[in-house]
């Protein structure tokens, strides 16, 4: 089976710092992922997530700051609530909420980023492909 493809939206104040550090340390990671730095996790559009799934991405991770640690007036709270609701829709339709990884305040450090991506990658490998939808 093909390796899963992962798209990561990372807040530049936390998740992206972790991703950057992992790169600088040359930590070995699964190769099929891309990181898109965001000013804030709340700017991740739900439509973009659906677009990515339709475009053949297997899993999407949104990495934001911890609750209480957002630089932009608790914008990450609304992001979590909104994205959790999207997870519901993914469950309803059988795409499965596990394809949308939400992780807030857990990827500041390189090793944390590494762990999250590796686990996510392993989890996606076990899921049935999205083919009937494409």
């Amino acid at each position: 089976m093909n390796q899963p493809r992962i798209l990561i939206f990372a807040c530049k104040w936390c998740g992206f710092i972790g991703a950057d550090a992992a790169g600088k340390k040359r930590i070995s990671l699964p190769s099929r992922f891309r990181v898109i730095p965001m000013e804030c996790a709340s700017l991740v559009e739900t439509d973009a997530i659906l677009r990515a799934l339709a475009g053949g991405i297997d899993g999407i991770a949104v990495l934001g700051c911890h609750i209480g640690g957002c630089r932009y007036n608790n914008a990450n709270h609304t992001a979590i609530k909104r994205l959790e609701l999207l997870q519901d829709l993914l469950d309803t339709t059988g795409i499965g909420s596990s394809r949308l990884l939400l992780s807030f305040g857990t990827a500041h450090e390189d090793y944390q980023f590494e762990e999250i991506i590796k686990n996510f990658f392993d989890e996606l490998t076990l899921l049935p492909p999205l083919d009937p939808w494409l």
């Binding site: 739900t46 439509d47 659906l50 677009r51 799934l53 339709a54 609701l85 999207l86 829709l89 339709t93 795409i95 939808w133 494409l134």
Partner: peptide, 26 residues
């Protein structure tokens, strides 16, 4: 076109239907 491919039937499943459904989520 950025969101839903135009001019194809049936509509793209994930984007067309789930974008609409999610816009009405709350």
């Amino acid at each position: 076109d950025v969101w839903v491919q135009r001019g194809v039937v049936p509509a793209e499943t994930i984007t067309f239907h789930l974008i609409r459904a999610f816009h009405l989520s709350d």
